[in-house]
Simulated scan of single mutants.
Amino acid sequence: MPSKYHKDNKSSEYELQTVPKEQKVLSKKQHAFNRLTQRIESLKQDIREDSSKLDILMELYGNEVAPQYPRIAELRINLAKVLARATERINFSSRHYSAIGDAIVSLCEEAFGDIDMNPELEELYDRWSAESYRAKLSQRLYRAKEMFADMMRDRYDVDIDVEDIEDSTEGFAQFKQRMKAQVEQDRQQFWQERHQKSKRQRQQEAAKKAAEEQKQRSIRSIYIALAKVVHPDGEKDDAAKVVKEEVMKKVVAAYEQQDLQILLTLELEWIHQTIENLQQLTDEKLQVYLDVLKQQADDLEKEKVELLHSPKYGAVAAYSSMPLNIAKSRILKDKRELKDYNGWLMAAASAFRSLDAKHSIMEFVAAYNERQQNNSADDGWYDVQI
Rank of each mutant, 00 (worst) to 15 (best):
I275S: 11
A297C: 11
A207H: 09
E245M: 07
D238C: 02
L268Y: 12
E301L: 02
D291V: 05
A253W: 07
K294M: 09
S221D: 15
Y319E: 09
L266C: 02
R202S: 07
D259Q: 11
H272D: 12
A240G: 07
E276A: 15
Y289T: 01
L308T: 13
E256C: 02
D238P: 11
Q214G: 03
I271Q: 11
L268F: 14
H309L: 05
A225W: 01
A318Y: 06
Y223G: 04
Q204W: 09
Y319R: 06
K312G: 02
L268E: 15
V288Q: 13
K228Y: 10
Q257K: 14
I271F: 10
E212F: 12
V316T: 04
E267R: 13
S221N: 12
L278Y: 05
L278A: 11
V305M: 01
K228P: 01
K249G: 05
T282G: 09
A240R: 10
D233L: 10
S321A: 14
P232F: 07
A206F: 13
V242E: 13
Q216H: 15
L268H: 13
A239M: 08
D299T: 08
E284P: 06
K285C: 06
Q203D: 10
E306W: 03
E245G: 10
D238M: 04
Q296E: 15
T282Y: 03
Y255F: 10
M248Q: 05
T282L: 09
Q273A: 15
I219G: 03
G234D: 01
L300W: 02
